[in-house]
Design a binder for these strands. Sequence first.
DNA 1: TTAGTTGCAAAAGGTTTGCAACCCA
DNA 2: TGGGTTGCAAACCTTTTGCAACTAA
Lengths: 147, 147
Amino acid sequence: MHKIISQVREKLRSREYKLTPQRQQILEVLLENKDKHLSAEDVYNLVKQKAPDVGIATVYRTLELFLEFDIIHSVNFGDGRKRYEYGEDNEGHHHHHAICVQCGKIIEINEDLLEELEKQVARDYEFDIMDHELKIYGHCQDCRGKK
Amino acid sequence: MHKIISQVREKLRSREYKLTPQRQQILEVLLENKDKHLSAEDVYNLVKQKAPDVGIATVYRTLELFLEFDIIHSVNFGDGRKRYEYGEDNEGHHHHHAICVQCGKIIEINEDLLEELEKQVARDYEFDIMDHELKIYGHCQDCRGKK
DNA sequence: TTAGTTGCAAAAGGTTTGCAACCCA
DNA sequence: TGGGTTGCAAACCTTTTGCAACTAA
């Protein structure tokens, strides 16, 4: 964790940006909730517990900054707000999500069986693929019975 | 087209809803732009050309209604607005999109090579799949050179 | 000093809602 | 008549922006 924070500090410094206390708090929240798909407001509320004075604007600006540096990436589940996760989006580290339409639970799936389809798309449409995103909608284990 | 309109009229009538002139105009716009991924505002502007008096609220309410009846479905490309397409979302009629990160072009892809992955998810997570949505990001034919 | 950074409040988008008027079975 | 429907405007929610104050190399 300290190591990651130092790395981020260097990454930012390389382009004349600072890892301010606020930004560090936001980074820590993201690191502590790696698999939670936090919305900007979630991040804001969590950071407020440590540093009550941060403003929501700073959270948005910091998330934007982290996105630009590929420190985090964002996902959109169609519920009207973006969600953020620590970690890059590329390098074969694709993210798949199973979303329960009943309780809203989001299950992260790491398999990568899209190679075949990607090849086909790249060939048929002359499309250079950078990333993909797969969402599966249905009922999770807990909600199967409640349909 | 007339046939579809009649079918929708019946579908709505079965639950005591009416296919009003406004709703029919909206439906027609959606039918005439099947593959265009229109936003609510796009629909609004197109409908306005035929019927200048419709309000944006009616458009939203109608889209909501059509969604409820599975007459249309919505997609979210993460650009801050929902997009709507005529047609159901299920029955193997899954939609895949290739989105060009440079020019924003959206290419519809109809292949369905996710069977294997779906089976795996259903088994490993005890998840009952209803639908899935795949987005592929990259550079389209026209933008390949401009990178 | 000076450029980056912050919090606040206002503004901006997209979407939803309250309400009186309206339409039609 | 009465329930569904409409347009308008206001409200809502998430996100962005203008600005003056602040911070640190």
